[in-house]
Design a protein around this nucleic acid. Structure first.
Lengths: 245, 245
DNA sequence: TCCAAATCAAGAGCAGTGCTCTCGTTCGAG
DNA sequence: CTCGAACGAGAGCACTGCTCTTGATTTGGA
């Protein structure tokens, strides 16, 4: 129905794709702030006003790029997860986190576009929600499988968080205990804190060898959501690792 | 020497302050991307070119605002910490984190300026480092005091992170064990992941009652850096909190 | 006290931006 | 075959950061 509906329609989707491609190129080269409709049009050999036939505004172009970025990140994470589908929840968790970091390092400007400061006056439309949810759903799935297998142990919730955690669990994963869902959502945000700090230069002169640092941090994150239950390492109260001054 | 060196010098610092103040106003109203030198000048009743006598470029104005923002955040965190100086490390940790979140919610655009996506082509000069370090130093101090008191217990480091963690410890807190320093730096980044996700709308439709959620999350963070040793809640292996479907 | 030097605001101007509107042209469904 | 919708081109508007020149004012040392 929508395929080959005439040369005009085909040309339209072709030009639309070319615009996005060139915009993505400029995004990688200069960043979202310097994305210029005129420059994109110039590079494509057309005039700036012609672009408005395809994207009503610069923000709409940005929205399209945002959805593409979310999908690209989600795809990378899903592919990495598929490769370790047989492994335990801890390995799967780490694989997804590492894939997210790798993607972010490879496309820093696209990462900044979706997880950096939002453009003022611009609010992402609901269209972006499915693409934006992919990594999160992956993480939920890992915890769910772990829970189905042996259950996840989590710190008890403070009373003032109980109701909210139950609501979150009902929304995101009704088959998981509220404790696990709250811990998961927190870990989800913290994962992007780690990635963002490295990407945005906050680790400069602080963390040098980032890959093992990141792996260790997300491993502890897996701990935090209850994916690492049998291992006795790091249980509080042992008091190891203290070197006196 | 620098005070009252004539009416000219005094007028200069007054005008400089007025420019920053107006710029901060526009920052809060429209965000960093839409900060316009011309608009600032217009509002101040001067001509745009006159602004360049005080700030060589727009980026230099941004740098000044960034330093001010870091200092403002650091001041808030330090004030909150001073109010609970006598309490235990866990309470002090939570107080600092809560103050950081509160500051961020009150000045979202200034938070985005310092912890959001960096402006492409702009790299913060080393001048910003002292101001940017204040909250981190506060957290280091809390862990140090806890360590001096009873020691902090932490998960053992994987072998490939040992060297880097020792280097980080030597740089940041030579009196702390590398395990604690690595955990602390990770928690530091994760804290801003939590704040950023709430501020940048990633929690929309996910987390509604954010204050208790945040408190619980940073409490777990305190756990992660070993500040909460005696409490037996949430120790892995107990397997509590599992409600079967 | 005087005068050169430094500092300042102002204005014009440059190259660039997002976006609107109008103009002929071309395509394709009825 | 026709007529409306879609299209590219171009001019133009109101902006932006930034540079350069001009003329006035202030300053501090001789």
């Amino acid at each position: 129905m929508s395929t080959a509906r005439g040369a005009r329609a085909r040309a339209r989707i072709e030009v639309t794709a070319a615009i996005k491609e060139e915009a993505r190129r400029q995004l990688a080269a200069e960043g979202a702030a310097k994305l210029s409709l005129r420059a994109v049009a110039r590079e494509l050999g057309m005039v700036s006003s012609a672009l408005y036939r395809y994207f009503p505004s610069r923000d709409d172009l940005l929205t399209a790029l945002i959805i593409d970025a979310y999908d690209s990140l989600g795809e990378s994470a899903e592919a990495a997860h598929a490769q370790v589908a047989g492994a335990g929840p801890r390995e799967r968790w780490i694989a997804v986190c590492v894939a997210a970091r790798r993607w972010a390092l490879a496309q820093p400007h696209e990462y900044a576009l979706i997880y950096g400061s939002p453009v003022p006056g611009y609010t992402a439309p609901d269209t972006t929600i499915p693409a934006a949810s992919r990594v999160g759903l992956l993480l939920v799935g890992i915890v769910r499988d772990a829970y189905r297998g042996k259950g996840v142990a989590r710190a008890p919730l403070p009373p003032e968080l109980k109701a909210e955690a139950q609501r979150m669990a009902a929304d995101l994963a009704p088959d998981l205990p509220p404790e696990a869902v709250a811990a998961l959502v927190a870990a989800w945000a913290q994962l992007y804190g780690l990635i963002g700090f490295e990407l945005f230069g906050q680790f400069n002169r602080i963390v040098e060898d980032r890959e093992p640092f990141f792996r260790h941090a997300v491993d502890q994150l897996a701990h935090g959501v209850g994916l690492v239950y049998p291992e006795p390492t790091g249980t509080p109260g042992k008091g190891n690792g203290m070197a006196g001054p």
